[in-house]
Amino acid sequence: TRVETATETAWISLVTALHLVLGLSAVLGLL
């Protein structure tokens, strides 16, 4: 259904953003 697709997209966006933040923090930590 469309609701499931929207929820899945939201989760993917959330996980991606989380990985970006963690990756950025790791890079800044190494610097």
Rank of each mutant, 00 (worst) to 15 (best):
L31M: 12
L30D: 04
L30Q: 02
L14E: 02
S25Q: 06
L18M: 02
L14W: 05
G23V: 07
L28S: 02
S13K: 01
A10I: 05
V3W: 08
G29A: 11
A10R: 08
L24Y: 00
V21A: 15
A6Y: 04
I12A: 12
G29L: 09
G29T: 07
I12Y: 11
S13R: 06
T16E: 09
T9G: 11
V21P: 07
S25T: 11
L28I: 03
A26Y: 13
A26H: 13
W11M: 15
L14R: 08
R2W: 14
A6R: 03
V21Y: 10
T9I: 08
V27Y: 11
E8R: 02
A17V: 08
H19A: 15
E8Y: 04
H19Q: 06
A17L: 08
A6T: 05
A17N: 10
R2Q: 02
A6K: 10
H19F: 00
R2D: 05
L31W: 15
E4S: 04
L28G: 02
E4T: 02
L30A: 14
I12E: 03
A17H: 06
G29Y: 14
L28P: 12
L22I: 06
V15Y: 03
R2V: 07
G29V: 13
A10P: 07
E4H: 01
L31Y: 12
A26K: 09
L18I: 07
A10N: 10
E8T: 02
L18S: 08
L24N: 00
L31G: 07
T1G: 06
R2S: 12
L24R: 08
R2L: 13
T5Y: 01
T1V: 09
H19W: 04
L14A: 02
E8N: 03
T16S: 12
L14N: 09
L18G: 08
E8Q: 01
S25H: 15
S13G: 09
L20R: 12
V21R: 11
W11A: 03
A6E: 06
T7N: 00
T9C: 00
G29E: 07
T9S: 06
T9H: 02
T9P: 14
S25P: 03
V21S: 15
S13E: 05
T5A: 04
T7W: 15
L22T: 15
S25K: 14
I12V: 11
R2Y: 04
T1H: 05
E8M: 06
A17Q: 00
L20M: 03
G23H: 01
L14Y: 03
T16Q: 12
W11R: 08
E4W: 09
G29D: 06
L18C: 15
V3C: 09
